[in-house]
Nucleic acid binder design. Structure first.
Lengths: 343, 343
DNA sequence: GCTTTTGCCGTGTACGTTAACGGAACTGTT
DNA sequence: AACAGTTCCGTTAACGTACACGGCAAAAGC
């Protein structure tokens, strides 16, 4: 299907390209009658603006502000995806500006957000993990008509251009299932929680809720599930006590510190049979996975999240096309056997 | 980092844009001395051709020939990914032309391939599942300087612009692992093979090899593994005989017909305990997965394969950027719990 | 010496869109 | 009738690249 140009529209309508342009851009100053005529011809002629011509003319560089933490490999991978996407789109005028905040510090988030906003970006990618403050910031962005994309966590009320991340509740549900494959009866499980770290985190809560839901649905008593609260500088002596009845233990680690727990189990020379599941394909977790010390890792595809974040803004800003508002990452199950092929 | 334009290069070199253009396009007719000067300035000025300007000028539509089978949902999903990608890139001049062949018929492949080549496409996406003929075709494409991308299966010798698909061997290995989770000793397994269908298929062979490798590595006797050859219009009476010793059976279905096998098991009222794994997230398999009649499905991400195939050619033809030659799909493990989030 | 060939280079136009600018035609006011 | 204000529209110059075309000089040919 061939596409018509504004010049052709102008010819057919008996007006000039300037008029056609005013109609198509809703810049006013055109008689209702001619406006309708132009629109009619445009529609019939399958008019779509030529992306190349538009961007050549505008000759704009698109500044994307990236508002993320950087404290671990998960976030670094997320950044890597963003950088790779940006370098692909570099020739199309996409440029990045990173603003890094400390996710245990609300003020640092606000400070960096304000810096980002002051830079008057064309689009923003952010992880709204500090919810209240993120809502404030998004309200500001909305007022300034700056599109923003969420990665990692969602904040439905803030109505982002797109959310890119995982269904955390369901991932916990899946974790419970995987821990119980091959066992017909409900099994004892321990959830490890870092008191100084996970307690502020909605994501962790949702994973745990999903985990419990599985036990409920199976008709297993929730008393099977214990929560091990771990303060900073922890010891896992308590693990032994929880496994006396049958010597087998299920460990659900709802954050990315699986490797730490495993190391601790080793140092306390725990010998009961265990099945362990954790989150995030960071190198230390991959190591323990390959060593058969962890059975499953659920991957959040941080690289892809970052990549898709940039792509969403690219589509919105440059192509001016539709963007899927909800882009759920798959609930990737990683084992020793397939971890090499995960991204 | 700002980018220089050919006009600026021309100015600095004291020549005209025409000369700069001749240098950059290696069209000759320019003195060695000025050529070197121009290249030097271009390099120092970080020259990159403006994608918008180039494509506006060229005003080309890029015709991609898609050479795939269409006999089942797997291939249809693959096509869907291709179509979606193409519609995203439509405004950039990407157009598709489908050529559908019957994968059990060499001649139909050759016929469609030749049609595709005669259409003088700018790029080709194909599944080289009929290996010998595919090599012929690729040789022709190479002679015509037409870039081609492989999806689904690879053919290393043909040196495609990119291969996009799964490591089939490793996927079989993974399947064996998943079937044996929770069992410390080697377990009896049955592999189902469609004699009229799978026998020509290299992919199936590799999956089975990978499956066996797992047993070997565990030190389990290969005699545990039986192969059930299924002719057209099959009956699965034999299944019962293979499970008398302990009543538990592992089923490995190395193709996408898992749902058929399950239906047969039901109709023969087989009551032994089974764990079943198959391939491909087609609706019928999703149904039996959700019904708890199948434990795992390994997904090949056909949608993503198709999407990435178009993207690879887009990058090569329009952006003129680098394309990763080996793009392995993750070995996606699907269960009842996460199948909704797979793509 | 002249013409012809060759090597090298500049000019000009077009691709489709955008938006500033200016101007014609019309309306309303004094 | 003169003027200002409003509404509507056309003209034009970019944006950076690609390439056809023509042209000038030096080298080659007779």
């Amino acid at each position: 299907m061939k596409r018509i140009t504004i010049k052709e529209i102008a010819q057919q309508a008996g007006v000039s390209v300037g008029t056609v342009d005013r109609v198509l851009h809703k810049r006013g100053e055109v008689a209702e009658k001619t406006k309708l005529l132009v629109l009619k011809i445009a529609k019939e002629g399958n008019y779509q603006t030529n992306v190349f011509a538009r961007n050549l003319k505008l000759n704009k560089t698109y500044h994307l502000a990236i508002l993320l933490p950087e404290d671990n490999e998960y976030w670094k991978t997320q950044r890597k995806g963003i950088e790779d996407a940006a370098s692909e789109y570099e020739s199309l005028g996409v440029q990045l500006q990173f603003y890094t905040f400390d996710r245990s510090n609300r003020d640092s988030f606000l400070e960096q957000s304000n810096l980002a906003i002051e830079s008057k970006p064309d689009g923003v990618i952010l992880a709204p993990i500090i919810t209240d403050e993120a809502e404030q910031i998004c309200a500001q962005l909305k007022r300034g008509d700056i599109p923003y994309v969420f990665v990692d966590s969602n904040l439905k009320s803030a109505e982002p251009l797109a959310f890119i991340g995982q269904d955390t509740f369901q991932s916990g549900y899946l974790a419970a299932k995987l821990l119980n494959i091959g066992f017909d009866n409900g099994h004892q499980a321990v959830i490890t929680i870092y008191t100084d770290f996970d307690s502020l985190n909605k994501t962790i809560d949702e994973r745990i809720s999903g985990f419990k839901k599985f036990y409920l649905e199976q008709g297993w008593p929730l008393s099977l599930i214990s929560e091990l609260k771990i303060p900073s500088g922890f010891e896992i002596k308590e693990v032994k006590e929880w496994t006396i009845n049958n010597g087998r233990l299920h460990l659900f680690i709802p954050n990315s510190r699986t490797h730490q727990i495993v190391k601790r189990l080793e140092s306390t020379q725990y010998e009961g049979l265990t099945r362990i599941i954790g989150y995030d394909k960071i190198q230390l977790n991959v190591d323990v996975l390959k060593d058969n010390k962890v059975d499953f890792i659920i991957n959040q595809n941080p690289y892809r999240q970052g990549y898709l974040g940039v792509q969403a803004l690219y589509k919105h800003l440059i192509i001016k096309g539709e963007v899927a508002p909800l882009q759920y990452m798959p609930l990737d199950i990683l084992t020793k056997e397939n971890v090499e092929f995960a991204n």
